[in-house]
Amino acid sequence: MIINGTEIEETFAEAFGMSATRVIITAVNLHWARTAGETMTGFATSVIGCGVEAGIEREIPPGETPDGRPGVSVLLFGMSGKALAKQLETRVGQCVLTCPTTAVFAGIEGEKRIPLGKNLRFFGDGYQISKQIGGRRYWRIPVMDGEFLCEESVARVPAVGGGNFLVLAETQEQALIACERAIQAMRRLPNVIMPFPGGIVRSGSKVGSKYKALMASTNDAYCPTLRGLVESNLDDGVGAVLEIVINGLSDQDVANATRTGVSAVCELGAAAGIRRISAGNYGGKLGQFHFHLREVMA
């Protein structure tokens, strides 16, 4: 399959089942809501080292938030419900509770619940106030700028993490421009985040390493500086590869985002130095979800 001169490789992205949640952070203005969201989702690129993968899903206008203030929605993905709950509590406690004027609310419905304000309330040292409004429980925790309003709990739902595609370009600049364009288009979609810095990964990894302590190491087959030394997947014209990793609330969301991203890259096409679109997998044995590029783009 070739789109606008760019080859879509006959391969697939391999993704995993994860546990996800969504919280809504509001503040006096969008600047502070976004600041809290960015802080909370900092150092959340990969579960391997960060415990959780997280990102800002979208900005929410005042008319759509629970308390009528500007807000952002944040998606968090963990490898288990327990890991997700721990990270959520830590991150809300350190990054949202501390951030001026913020409040935090559950942004997703479901039967399985994880604590949001349930334990954070103890910061109130006995002066916290519980309020049940519309069947939901909220905590009002006294803080130095007034009150931190926080919903008691939030649902966690099954989700999909690790969807991806690789952009193989002639130069590093061309690969970056194409990926930036893809991210710009993908960020308009609901239910997905691209957790890596700016949504883009340069250090794709393979499973295992020559060093026993490491469970993953550089994806040498896609490193242009190792061409000629290892069994490379790069032909002569490829000078740089960048990857976009996608986490979504369902496999359909990940597939939609993949299609949107790849389409945005292919609109630039071969004329902009985009040689090929590939994807990362582990032979299909580890992940439950397979996104075959040609099927997604068909």
Binding site: P66, D67, G68, R69, K131, I133, G146, E147, L149
Partner: peptide, 13 residues
């Protein structure tokens, strides 16, 4: 005097 945003949630109900 205080600005309490839980009142928004309450009155919206």
């Amino acid at each position: 005097r205080h600005n309490l945003n839980f009142l928004t949630l309450l009155s919206r109900g």
